[in-house]
Design a protein around this nucleic acid. Structure first.
Lengths: 327, 327
DNA sequence: GTGAAAGCGCTAACAG
DNA sequence: CTGTTAGCGCTTTCAC
């Protein structure tokens, strides 16, 4: 920067002004500076700037697993939006592990990110409220915290989605519907389970805790879980899965057990990820606009960062059922 | 930091020494400092440190598209490895656009990343050599640059993979094998095409340029491309695809055209992504260890960063054929 | 073993 | 319209 100033025959501050185009500058001076910048290939250091402005033009993104297409598509939405705004994105996986989430958030703080977009783990809610939110603007996805300054919320209607799914299964005549739930939050708190329960009860069916299994949101759990469910409770004729990955695993389990899908056992997924229409049988699932979750979260994050006083009401994204072959 | 120093009754420098545990420090002093740090909840600012050390503990990752499971799994490998080393990762998509790659690299430079892992776009090779590599340690994936200091290379044997695939198709009796190639590099430079060609020629079949179509590495191109190939060249009985996404699209095209896979048209993919075994029909494909690409690239990146003088020879990952249903 | 002073590259406040 | 000075939070000489 000093070199540029010298080359242009102006002060260092003038260079700064040109770079940030702030303040009035005589056009001729400005041109001289611009030429010097070009000649020297000068690029301002974001690090040095950050030290004084407290802005790094960086935001953190934390979710379960980038290798899950659900998160990957969300990431894509965030990344595209961030690019437009010249923000860089740090990415971190937690695999649903609260400690990993804590470490990620702490590390982001150390790096002075301007904000973080998080799919929060229930067990950390209080910790986040206490230690992170006071010092870092946050956008939380699918989280029921109260609106407040420096906090953005993006929600998809989880319990409604589950209700849609289970209503459909009941309508199709299923009376014993197992569930393969995720394990990211305690069973009682998962809104998908609430929706499942609500649907059951609305139709006069009993909710049975023992046919709701929890496990990681991965194919492997779908396989193991469906296997267990169908073996131990032969009355089950349908399984509602926490996500499409689990549903794919459940598909495989049925194949292994010689059960035809959907005739012997219907399988219903959640997320409608990129591949759900291609697997065999194609998944009937709850469609979620993953790209929009990411894009809206990023936009909201930027707003929240720029308006630290303002309170933003939660953004809501709707879901709907996609009927394919598996149910 | 000053506060900590005061609270502990030592100088600022001593705090720095404790934090970085460097130099000899009397145990008692050290404890006093540690206590003060804990009490005040002090965390050193990576930004401030970076300004003087020129290390940000940050590396950039650039590839085509995070929503492609191939890249997502690579990312997972990078991320896991980085976490162990306390490095944060910036992620950026290019969609194969050279300008996007340039912008990403430049932005990483502005942010003072310690290094970048890139799936480079051929069109930018010279630019990268000239403007980026001199100022930024790089690890390049599937790139045939000569080994040199501050440069790491991770290669999977692209042309061999393609040869494996096409050999298999020929063995199965196919004589007219179309190819749906990617468009990330000019057609002639794609090593997958080289392998395809090599295999053909080794078996005495002619390479026909017109049945090698190029397009984006996405499902949509697979659909369009296969449709075109099968319609215009009815003699084609097998299609070798640049990746599994394209293969999935080709699968769909066959379905639409009423062609059975593999009886009427065999389809062979590349990458063996997470879902390739689940789609209908399950894809026969070339298996690549994506997680290892990421993990090895990250480890190599760290080595390269720490040994700027040393020359690292390329890391090589093998591929093999996975035979499922589609061919 | 420990501390004082200088400086990383930039912006903010205040002059002029 | 432009320049001078100070300082962001840390590490690095170099003394003591």
């Amino acid at each position: 920067m000093r070199d540029v100033a010298e080359a242009a025959g102006v002060s260092i501050k003038t260079v700064s002004r040109v770079v940030n185009n702030q303040g009035e500058i005589r056009e001729e001076t400005r041109q001289r500076v611009l030429i010097a910048i070009n000649k020297l290939g000068y690029r301002p250091s974001k690090v040095a700037r950050a030290l004084v402005t407290r802005r790094t033009d960086t935001i953190g993104l934390i979710f379960g697993d980038i290798a899950n297409p659900y998160h990957a598509e969300v990431a894509r939405g965030v990344l595209d939006t961030a690019k437009e705004e010249n923000l860089e994105i740090f990415v971190c996986n937690t695999d649903g592990n609260p400690e990993a989430e804590k470490r990620a958030l702490t590390s982001f703080l150390d790096h002075n990110v301007d904000g973080a977009i998080v799919f929060p783990i229930f067990a950390n809610y209080e910790w986040i409220k206490k230690y992170i939110h006071p010092v870092l603007p946050l956008v939380l996805i699918n989280c029921n915290m109260a609106p407040q300054p420096r906090l953005g919320i993006v929600n998809t209607n989880l319990s409604q989605g589950a209700k849609l799914a289970v209503d459909y299964l009941i309508e199709k005549g299923h009376r014993h519907i197992g569930m393969l739930a995720g394990d990211v939050a305690p069973k009682e708190t998962i809104r998908r389970v609430q929706g499942y329960k609500a649907s059951l009860e609305a139709k006069g069916l009993v909710y049975r805790d023992e046919i709701v299994l929890t496990g990681g949101p991965i194919i492997e759990f779908g396989f193991i879980g469906a296997n267990q469910l169908l073996t131990e409770y032969p009355e089950i004729t349908a399984i509602f899965c926490y996500n499409d990955l689990i549903a794919m695993g459940a598909n495989q389990a049925c194949k292994k057990l010689g059960k035809r899908v959907p005739q012997d056992c219907a399988i219903l997924g959640y997320d409608d990820n990129k591949f759900s229409g291609f697997v065999n049988p194609a998944l009937t699932t709850v469609h979620v606009d993953k790209y929009q979750i990411g894009a809206k979260a990023a936009k909201l994050m930027i707003d929240v960062m720029n308006n630290p006083e303002k309170e933003y009401s939660p953004i809501h994204l709707d879901v709907h059922l996609i009927i394919r072959e598996s149910a």
